[in-house]
Every structure is written in structure tokens, then in C-alpha cells.
Design a protein around this nucleic acid. Structure first.
Length: 421
DNA sequence: TCTGGGGTCCTAGGACCC
DNA sequence: TCTGGGGTCCTAGGACCC
């Protein structure tokens, strides 16, 4: 058996922990750049506010209903997530942290327990110790546990926990579940299935494998087998190695000149390299990209990306900045209003496992001096706050900076800020 | 008049997730 | 005026090999 623990309206719940006056009131959290609505309280959902809706479009409705609005505060959510996961880890050694607000537990060896009772304990302890409400789904496979958690969330009388522990219960749940709400079946696939008159998850389980394979590919077939009770998506106790690291942002105001574009890309590069070092990885290539605002039909559009193989795998900011700045020059064209840019680090490998040159005539690794400098920079920024020291290439006058006008205090990570209130 | 078969690797695009 | 960010996986098609 597997359990899925899913935090309810997670970002909104994090904000409410420090703003108890907002319990029972409509609250939303916005994406970066205050662009879209990405988390809604139940009261906000009831007002008809849609997930992913642009903030500016929803504004009249938000104002009219006196909805509390927050810019996203990822350091707060990351810290709260960590707390939730720590509590959860007390319940089973076999835990897969699936996302910032969800985790799977393997309940192998717990067969003798009353699992619903166990689920209620998990829920109560997380709420008591972190203030975050969660839903718990328990079932034979991960895909069924996801479905169970969904019902646990939206059905008040279940009080947040649903265990699908016999065929009749599974059937009842799958009959009620829209095929598009199955984990792994998205909007496009749901439309394809609806065309074939497959509306519910139960109907999907009765479709023959060849048709499923043809319509939904091999991943879809695995999903259906999971719905039938066969485990095809194993718990991942250790996170698989990363294949790429991306840092990108939309600009608060459109960028038309090279210098701010370069400075933004330098800032994203520094951030990406910091992540790289944190993971103990080195990159062998980078991709720089930038594009205009596709929603502005009246503007000339541009979508560009430049790939650059690094001479040797590296995690050194100065080195990678050198190449990313060159890419920024190559990608820039006059006469466009850039809306977003970013960097992807690819060809990742473990830092201490780099390919060495057979004949040591060219530089093939970062030098010890460079390594020491990076350690020092990371150490200072960790202790004294992000960007205490930074590269001149990042600039100091970030006109492109994303808007974030409604951000809450960093209650759990920056005491200076909280104490200054 | 008529132009194979079998394989690998890479890339772009599309789908999905939170 | 105003539309997020960070990932993964699969497939089809092209390039290339013998």
C-alpha cells in the first residue's frame, strides 16, 4: 500500500500560518512577477477564481470580494515544506518527496495497522506541528493514492483521509473520477479519450491495452495499469540525478537594450551556478534563451536560444559567466521588447567525476583557487544573505526585476525582517 | 523503367507534473 | 499596462552509418 500526503492549497496555507486572521477568508497567491494566480483558498475557489488565471483579468473579482492577495514568497514555502516533510519522515522511512507540497509514503510492513487511523494521525500531527492542513490518500498504487487524496480533499465528511482498501471502494472512486483528473492524464489526453466516449477513470481501465498504448503512449499504459491495481510507478526513495538546471524570469518591464538583458542573464547565471554547486554537479554546456511577449500581438515577436559547449565541465560562476555573456550578445537583436530570458545548464555530471584529458596540455578542470573562491562566495551569501557579494556583470540597477508588490515577511528565514516590524 | 534494409543517435516538439 | 517557473519523459523524423 501507498499513501499520498498532499498539502491543501499549500502556498495560501503557508501565508495563513502567520496571518491567522485570514482563516475562513478568500486568499490567493500570485506567481512570480505577480502574473497569475497559482494558489487559492477554498473560499477563493468558491468565488469562481480559476487556477492559472492572469492577475490583471481576475482583479475586478478579487477587489469586489475583498480577496487577500500575496506575491509568491518561495523561501517561506520552501521552509514550511521542509518542516512538513520532517514530520512526515517520522511516520515511515520510505518517503518520496514528490513536490514542494506532496509526498508518497510506502506502507510496506504496515499491513497489520489500521491504515485509515494511521492517516488521521499523520494529518493531525502535521497540522499541530506546522499549521498546514493536509489530505491523505491510501491505496494499492501511487496513481490510486493520488485519486484517493483528491476525494479526501473535496469531500468534507471524509475529514481529510480516504483509504481505498477493497475493490468496491476503488470502483466507486474510479466511477466518480473524471478521466482528466487521473494523475498523468492531462487536458490533451482527456480530450482524446472523451472523443472515444471515455469519460470516467473506470471506463479508461476497461479500454484494451493496444488502444491505450496507441492513444496515450507507454506512459499512459502504465497509468492505466496503476488504476487497475498493478504497481508500475515505483516509489523513488532517493531523488534521481538532475539532468538540467534552469533559472529564468519574466521581466517586470520589457527590456529593449543589450545591457539590461546581459545583466539579467548574468544574474540568472550566478543563481544557476550556485544551484549547481549546491548539488555537487558540473555542467558541460549552457543554453541561453530570450523571447518577447507572445501575448502582445501588436509587437514583433522573437524567440531565440543559443547553445554553448563549455571547453571543460565547470561549476565556476566566473567561467560560466564569461560564456553566458557572449551568448547574451549573440542572442540580442535591436528592435524587440524582451519579456523573459533564462539559462539552462546541461550535460550535468558529478563534480568530482569529470572527464580528464588524456594529454594534459589544456585546462580541463576548475583550479583549486577558483574552487576556494566559490566556496567563500557561497559561504558569505549563505551566512549574510543572498547577493551580499555578487559579480559586477550582474549590475546594480535591476530595472528588469520582476514585480513583487504584495510579498509577505520572510517569517521563518529572515529574523531581521520580522523583528523590524 | 528501375534506387534496400537495418540500425543508432540526436533534436524538436509535445505531452505531462507541481 | 498587465499572462510563472522548473522539471521529466516520449515520439517522430532526420542524419548518418554500413
Amino acid at each position: 500500500m501507498h499513501a499520498l500526503i498532499d498539502c491543501n492549497n499549500f502556498f495560501v496555507s503557508c501565508e495563513r500560518v502567520f496571518r491567522p486572521d485570514l482563516w475562513g477568508k478568500p486568499v490567493v497567491v500570485l506567481s512570480n512577477n505577480d502574473g497569475c494566480i497559482i494558489s487559492r483558498s477554498n473560499e477563493a475557489k468558491a468565488l469562481g477564481i480559476k487556477m492559472g488565471e492572469p492577475h490583471f483579468k481576475a482583479k475586478p473579482l478579487l477587489v469586489k470580494n475583498n480577496v487577500a492577495i500575496f506575491s509568491s514568497n518561495y523561501s517561506l514555502y520552501g521552509d514550511m515544506s521542509h518542516r512538513v516533510m520532517q514530520v512526515l519522515a517520522q511516520f515511515s522511512p520510505d518517503i518520496e518527496i514528490y513536490s514542494i507540497d506532496e509526498a508518497f509514503l510506502s506502507l510496506k510492513g504496515f499491513e497489520h495497522k489500521n491504515l485509515s487511523e494511521y492517516g488521521r494521525e499523520v494529518r493531525e500531527r502535521i497540522y499541530r506541528w506546522t499549521g498546514i492542513p493536509v489530505s491523505v490518500g491510501i491505496a494499492e498504487t501511487k496513481t490510486l493514492a493520488k485519486a484517493a487524496a483528491n476525494f479526501a480533499k473535496i469531500t468534507p465528511k471524509l475529514e481529510g483521509v480516504l483509504e481505498l482498501n477493497n475493490n468496491a471502494l476503488v470502483d466507486a472512486a474510479l466511477n466518480k473520477l473524471d478521466v482528466g483528473d487521473v494523475w498523468g492524464i492531462g487536458r490533451r489526453n482527456a480530450a482524446k479519450l472523451n472523443d472515444k466516449c471515455i469519460i470516467t477513470a473506470k471506463q479508461l481501465t476497461k479500454l484494451d491495452d493496444a488502444t491505450i498504448r496507441k492513444t496515450l503512449s507507454i506512459t499512459g499504459l502504465k497509468t492505466v495499469q496503476e488504476l487497475r491495481g498493478q504497481n508500475r510507478i515505483p516509489i523513488e526513495l532517493a531523488p534521481p540525478p538532475k539532468k538540467g538546471i534552469t533559472v529564468s524570469r519574466s521581466f517586470g518591464t520589457p527590456v529593449t537594450e543589450l545591457q539590461p538583458l546581459q545583466e539579467s542573464i548574468a544574474t540568472f547565471t550566478a543563481k544557476a551556478c550556485e544551484k549547481l554547486r549546491k548539488e555537487g554537479l558540473a555542467a558541460s554546456a549552457i543554453i541561453i534563451y530570450a523571447h518577447t511577449n507572445k501575448h502582445r500581438k501588436q509587437d514583433r515577436q522573437f524567440n531565440g536560444s543559443v547553445t554553448c559547449e563549455l571547453p571543460y565541465s565547470s561549476d565556476n560562476t566566473a567561467n560560466i559567466l564569461h560564456h553566458s555573456r557572449e551568448c547574451a550578445v549573440r542572442i540580442y537583436k535591436e528592435g524587440f521588447r524582451y519579456k523573459k530570458a533564462g539559462i539552462m545548464l546541461i550535460g550535468l555530471q558529478e563534480k568530482n567525476n569529470e572527464q580528464l584529458e588524456l594529454f594534459n596540455t589544456v585546462k580541463t578542470t576548475d583550479s583549486e583557487k577558483e574552487e576556494n573562491l566559490m566556496q567563500l562566495v557561497d559561504g558569505i551569501n549563505k551566512q549574510l544573505g543572498n547577493n551580499t557579494v555578487f559579480y559586477a556583470a550582474q549590475g546594480i540597477n535591476h530595472k528588469w526585476k520582476p514585480t513583487s508588490e504584495l510579498v509577505s515577511k520572510h517569517y521563518t528565514t529572515r529574523w531581521s525582517e520580522v523583528l523590524s516590524v
